[in-house]
Amino acid sequence: MSAIEDPRTAPASSSGSAQTAAKIDLLISLHLHSWPALTLAIQNNWGGPTSNDKGDWFAGAISELFSNGDVIDADDLEEVLIQVMLDEFEVVVDDDSPAEVAASIFKGRQRILQGDYSEVDQMLVRWEEKQKKGPEKLPFKRVEEDDDGQETDWESSLSDEDDIVMDEAPQLVHATGQEKPAPEIDEDGFTKVVGKKKR
């Protein structure tokens, strides 16, 4: 991921609102770049070759939504986080993390608007310390089994020019390797629908 911009090194401004805006931008970037779902999607290029740029764009887009008054509460922001992950990275985030990230951004933003920068400054220090240790690699990778039952990297058989059409975005959870039973065909040639318990 790209470096987080530090407003402490930005040119001095006579306007306190410029510093407040910079701190809010920093807060959003830190929360997004610390979100495991987004980190995982970027590390594995699930958003394509420009995944890293999409991560940076994501933070800027949220700042703009706040500036324009397009998000009024944490629920609105949660919906944006879920939708962008689906649209840009083809990932369905099916845990509570979007709600947690949205709530943290909203609470942190309120503190900054009240002139309290302590939380975002502490987050930046922790982020910088983490970066000195090197980027954290998350232990998940999207894999797919080939005909021999061997696991292969999903990206390995595709070039950057290939378009992929999917009915559903991949889940963030790791697949269990359980095989699907063969479909049952009745005497009229229709596929029978079998409940999970009967499989």
Rank of each mutant, 00 (worst) to 15 (best):
D70E: 14
S156I: 01
A103E: 14
Q114A: 14
G55Q: 05
G60P: 00
V193Q: 15
G69R: 08
W154E: 10
L32F: 06
L27I: 01
V193D: 15
R199Q: 11
T39S: 15
H33A: 08
A182Q: 14
T152Q: 12
D76K: 02
K192F: 00
A37E: 15
E129R: 15
V194Q: 13
D76Q: 01
V173Q: 14
S156C: 00
L27C: 04
E119L: 00
G60V: 01
A37C: 07
Q131F: 05
D53Y: 06
G177I: 05
I185E: 07
P183T: 10
S67K: 15
A169H: 03
T39Q: 15
N68G: 09
L27P: 02
A41L: 10
L138E: 14
E187N: 12
L65A: 03
K137M: 14
R199D: 04
T39C: 15
N68Q: 14
Q83H: 11
A41P: 14
K133Y: 10
S51V: 04
G177T: 06
S67W: 03
D148H: 08
E88S: 07
D25K: 07
R8S: 14
D95F: 09
S97W: 08
A3K: 09
T152S: 01
H33E: 11
T20L: 07
G115I: 07
G47T: 04
A74V: 00
F89W: 02
V92S: 10
Y117N: 13
A102G: 06
A59S: 13
V125H: 03
P49G: 10
D160N: 05
E90T: 02
P11G: 07
D73W: 05
A102R: 04
D95V: 10
I42H: 06
D121H: 03
A41N: 09
E184N: 01
E179P: 05
L124N: 07
K130I: 09
L124A: 07
A182W: 07
W127Y: 14
T39P: 11
L38Q: 11
D146V: 05
L32Y: 05
V143F: 09
Q110T: 10
E155W: 02
S159C: 00
D76A: 04
K198R: 10
G115Q: 03
T50K: 13
W57G: 06
M85Q: 08
L113C: 07
N52A: 15
L81F: 04
F190E: 13
K54Y: 09
G195I: 11
A182L: 13
I112V: 14
T176R: 04
S15H: 12
D73F: 03
P98I: 02
W154I: 06
D148L: 06
D95I: 11
E5T: 13
E187A: 15
R142G: 04
S97G: 11
A37T: 10
E151P: 02
I105K: 02
Q150N: 12
A61W: 05
K192T: 02
E151W: 03
V92G: 04
I4G: 00
K130W: 13
A99R: 11
S118V: 00
S159E: 04
